[in-house]
Design a protein around this nucleic acid. Sequence first.
RNA 1: CGGGGUGUGGCGCAGUCCGGUUAGCGCACUUGGUUUGGGACCAAGGGGCCGCAGGUUCAAAUCCUGCCACCCCGACCA
Length: 567
Amino acid sequence: MYQSQYFIPTLKEIPNDAQMPSHQLMLRAGLIRQIAAGVFSWLPYGYKILKKVQDILREELDAIGGQEFLLPALNPKEIWDQTNRVEAMGDVMFHLKNRDNLILAPTHEEIIAYHASQSIKSYKDLPQIWYQIQNKFRNEPRPKSGVMRGRQFLMKDSYSLDASEEGLDISYEKHSLAYHRIFERCGIKFFVVGASSGAMGGSKSQEFMVENSFGEDTCAVNYESGYSSNMEVAVSYVQPLGRIENSPEYEKFATPNAKTINELAEQFELEVNTCAKSVVYVVDSELVLILMRGNDELNESKLQSFFETNQTRPAEEDEIVKCFGANPGSLGPINIKTPIKIYADNLLKDANGLVSGANENGFHFKSIDLLRDCKIEGYSDFRTVIAGEADILSGKPLKVVNAIELGHIFKLGTKYSNALGAKILDENGKEKPIVMGSYGIGVERILACIIEQNHDEDGIVWDKDLTPFHIHILGLAYDKSEIVQDSCNQLKSELEKLRLEVLLDDRKERPGFKFKDADLLGIPIQVIIGDRGLSEDKVELKFRKSGEKIEVKTTDILNHITKFYNI
RNA sequence: CGGGGUGUGGCGCAGUCCGGUUAGCGCACUUGGUUUGGGACCAAGGGGCCGCAGGUUCAAAUCCUGCCACCCCGACCA
């Protein structure tokens, strides 16, 4: 490819709209251009590498028996009504104004289940793995970070269809392995976390995450022990409070200036951990009290999975006052004006000797015994893990990091097959719903993550195993020097015979300009060919990653390159 | 949806508070010349409905009203 004829509009300056390094570089190196918030065009240089990422996805999915589909972006609303997801998705789903019975598909579980229901009738037809690599449409409230979160985005989605839970386990495991291979081949450092299944339904679910300060998820990790978990479900080892010997009757005492746990602990010389904090939530429009240890923070995701609902919110002050007869700051499990259900964090299980609010402004109780003095409906892990706490695997400190969700694998179960009537007859002639799994990867996110992990101040640094071009030939004074032209073109055709992809900078630009552009584009090897070197029968080789530059004889250049690419 | 910010040539910005030449600068672009191994220099050019609409005024990029777009924080995120 001659660069003078290749549309690759590079930018010297960082576009004002881009914050994330990968976003900046994708714009600067001419991979993408934004067309609206969360909507991007892929330019030739970007699309070239994006297709290579897709090749990897296809190879690895084909390797586990996947079959590629091309599914429509326009879907009949009727099919989506059968799983009630038009309502569940709400504003996230794009609707059409002038064709009300169609929607833009945000994902394709329904369509897959629909096809299965039509044509899969027997356990003998299973298992199947069906996948697609296509644009999905979601009306994201706030697109951000370039292709990281868009309203139209490319997704690899696969779906497994099995006759049994055991079959699903196998399909799920196959995907897990395929995902490991995919991300390894992309050269991405990642980790896997257990995740909450959210509104998708289903049982087991894991996310493939990439540590990144711009990531929208938060995870607790310890790379040494291998512990990693989304903060939604992360746990750590913390000693429960337990019971103390001496357990007198609880007793009210005045705490006029103590509104927070810290103030209370400080003024009365108490252990923060023995103060039970009262957190009031509205769960499915019912007020509940959650007792937390000291300054532990309630984790709303854990609360939601405990109550199996996503309808939760902190109670408003007026609701609290009305129910408890006291203001926040003096709340506790005893003497509630209108008794409500009380739950407590595992660390407080059966504890005594606690201090908590007396539900009377300015007063607290001490020596509370949860076994004796109040009724706890249930204990669970409600607390948010804090960085530095002990990892449950190794006891070593946990790190809390931001992360990008690259892939997600789900055991869906029978939710969609039941809703769409995707049923089979088993060995005994008994009708059963197909057991499904769903497995997604954000294709453009892969590219963004590669660039996040492989760039420097000069530009992108592609890996030799995944790069738009293998060699970047920089012809210095190409337009003036016939000998440079001949030399460049000869090398180009020799390399192309070896099936290596070559970008030849034949533009009428000054050397410095070409060097800067080449570093920005990030092709692994630059071959710098100019009159100066050729006069001594030499060219220069620059390795983008290390920055190392070597002068080699023109007769040796091919050897160096084939060695680098192992061919 | 709440809060904040920004819209001026392809990109990055100044000018807006305090209205008044022909709207300016750097990069990019065109032509000519000199240069040519890390984003050259000189000269001459081309390119703007100053986000859109309405209003105030003799006069609006600048003041007022409404709207739109984009970015950031939050909420949300199958």
